[in-house]
Each structure stands twice: as structure tokens, then as C-alpha cells.
Deep mutational scan, measured.
Amino acid sequence: KTVEVNGVKYDFDNPEQAREMAERIAKSLGLQVRLEGDTFKIE
């Protein structure tokens, strides 16, 4: 899975870890996480 923030992509081998990281980043920035294919987009 991939986490994308402001056009910057971070790859994770563990999908659960990617989801947790995406949620943590989104919460700290006051944004939403949206799953698009294999990418968690933070917008």
C-alpha cells in the first residue's frame, strides 16, 4: 500500500501499517483519508 500526502508518496509493505500511518498523518493535519486503488490519499 501507498500513502500519498501533498503529492509525496510513501510505500509500505504492511497494509495495516500504511492505514494507521495515513490516519495519524491526516489527523495531525486536520485532513481526510481516502482510499483510491492501493493508495491512501490524504486530502
Score class of each variant (00 low, 15 high):
E4R: 05
E36I: 08
I42A: 02
E36V: 11
K9F: 09
A18W: 05
P15F: 14
G37T: 03
L31W: 12
V8W: 08
R19P: 00
K1G: 10
N14E: 09
L29W: 06
G7H: 05
K41D: 02
D13T: 11
K1R: 13
K27W: 09
R24L: 13
T39A: 06
E36K: 03
D11W: 15
R19M: 08
A22C: 06
R24E: 11
R19T: 04
E23I: 12
E36N: 05
E43T: 12
D11N: 14
G7Q: 03
Y10E: 02
E23Q: 09
D13W: 07
L35F: 10
E16W: 10
V5R: 01
K1M: 15
K9G: 04
I25L: 10
N6F: 15
L29V: 03
L31F: 08
T39G: 06
R34P: 03
E36M: 05
V33H: 04
R34Y: 11
P15W: 12
F40S: 02
N6M: 14
Y10A: 03
K41V: 15
F12A: 04
E20C: 14
L31M: 13
K27F: 10
G7R: 03
E23S: 06
V33Q: 02
G30I: 00
A22N: 00
D38Q: 07
T39S: 07
F40V: 02
I25D: 01
I42R: 00
K1S: 13
E16S: 09
Y10S: 03
G37Y: 06
R19K: 11
L35P: 04
R24H: 11
Y10P: 00
L31R: 04
D11I: 15
E16C: 11
R34S: 08
K27N: 13
F12W: 04
T39D: 02
E16P: 01
A26E: 00
Q32K: 14
I42W: 01
V8I: 13
N6Y: 13
E43L: 11
Q32F: 11
T39C: 15
E36H: 07
R24S: 10
N6S: 07
T2P: 02
Y10N: 02
T2F: 15
L35E: 11
K9V: 11
E43Q: 11
D38I: 04
E4N: 07
F40C: 04
L29M: 11
I25S: 02
L31C: 15
F40Q: 00
Q32N: 11
T2Y: 15
V3D: 01
E43I: 14
D38R: 03
R34H: 11
S28T: 12
A26K: 01
N14I: 07
V5Q: 02
R19N: 04
G37M: 04
P15N: 08
M21D: 03
A22H: 00
Q17K: 12
G30Y: 03
N6C: 15
A18D: 00
Y10K: 04
L35C: 11
F40L: 10
T39W: 03
N6A: 08
V3P: 01
I42V: 12
A22L: 05
A18N: 01
A22Q: 00
E43P: 05
D13G: 08
F40W: 15
E36R: 03
K27Y: 10
S28M: 14
V3I: 10
V5F: 15
T2C: 14
P15Q: 09
K1P: 08
L31G: 13
G37L: 05
E16Q: 12
E20M: 10
E20D: 10
E16V: 10
D13Y: 06
E16L: 09
T39K: 06
T39V: 14
D11Q: 15
N6I: 06
I25A: 04
S28Y: 14
L31V: 13
N14V: 07
R19L: 11
S28Q: 15
E20G: 05
K1D: 03
E23D: 11
M21T: 10
V33I: 12
K9W: 06
L29S: 04
T39L: 08
K1F: 15
L35H: 07
R19W: 12
Q17D: 14
D13H: 09
A18C: 09
K1C: 15
V8K: 12
V8G: 03
N14H: 08
E36L: 04
L35G: 02
Q32M: 12
K41S: 04
Y10V: 07
A26G: 06
N14Q: 07
M21Q: 07
E23C: 14
K9Q: 09
K9C: 12
D38G: 12
K41P: 01
R19F: 10
N14Y: 08
G37A: 06
K1N: 10
K9N: 05
E16T: 09
